[in-house]
Design a protein around this nucleic acid. Structure first.
Lengths: 143, 143
DNA sequence: GCTTGACCTTCCCATCTTGGTAAGGTCTAC
DNA sequence: GTAGACCTTACCAAGATGGGAAGGTCAAGC
């Protein structure tokens, strides 16, 4: 039995976030003391650690809801977990490819930029002209 | 001379975003017709294309403000542009490394997951136990 | 001239996760 | 009893973008 500050310190999830996760339904409403203070058990902290770890792996809160449900379900199929994880990996890799495209384009432009006091700059020239068609136009906003 | 819809179509920046960029000061307030409609010149569209291209390269709107100022300044030093570009590249690469760390961890867990109807799942086991210390703890939230 | 449909305007809301802050109640140790 | 550390709720902020409502305007057709 501990209050929210203790649970936060023990789990690595800030008190602010614990309340937030509760408010969006990722966590059930915490039990309260008579004075209205939330209190948590070691088991609750265990769940918070799970969430923290999943966030560190880049899972969105919605995904974590699914993962938690599977975690709690002793009869879950590992295929369900794997599907979520690999779907997430695919999304991460799309994102990486998008960022890498940006990096490649910028590096290419930057090597041709003197980088001195002269005003000539291929980077600005590219932005001016609209580039040569690299750095994914269509999906670039889908961050 | 064209109204906002035409400028949006010609530049690839939505009308919504054009108004937004104006509201945050990235663009000067557009001239208006007597009826209050914004109107734009080909030169304005040129600027919008510049912004669009820079966004596609992942520059934040704040960075684009700097880039625009340099673009307009005929006596700018290319070093200033290069500095912004390379700073952005470094940020992109940090982000890529972070995401790649997540991918590596998840892939490693996923290969050991049967992915069938059985409940045993190393992915959930890892989330449960807190992992082995990969997938950057501290900076994972800095998105 | 009037109507219709496409366009424009502003304003508010939502996303997603996190942090900050303010005003007020509670608990603990002295 | 009081100070200080903690808790509560509620609102604001960020980033960039889309959606929608309510209402004004314009161009084309009849």
């Amino acid at each position: 039995m501990m209050n929210i500050g203790k649970a936060a310190a023990a789990s690595g999830v800030s008190a602010k976030m614990i309340r937030y996760y509760e408010s969006i339904g990722l966590l059930p409403a915490a039990r309260r003391t008579d004075a209205g203070y939330r209190f948590y058990t070691d088991e609750d902290v265990h769940v918070l650690r799970f969430i923290r770890r999943a966030r560190d792996l880049g899972f969105a809160v919605a995904d974590i809801g699914e993962l938690l449900a599977l975690w709690r379900d002793q009869s879950r199929a590992s295929a369900d977990v794997k599907r979520i994880a690999l779907g997430h990996v695919a999304a991460l890799e799309r994102k990486i490819a998008e960022l890498q495209g940006m990096v490649d384009t910028l590096r290419m432009l930057a090597v041709h930029c003197h980088g001195d006091a002269r005003p000539d700059c291929p980077i600005l020239a590219d932005l001016d002209a609209g580039g040569t068609g690299r750095a994914g136009r269509g999906t670039a906003q889908a961050t």
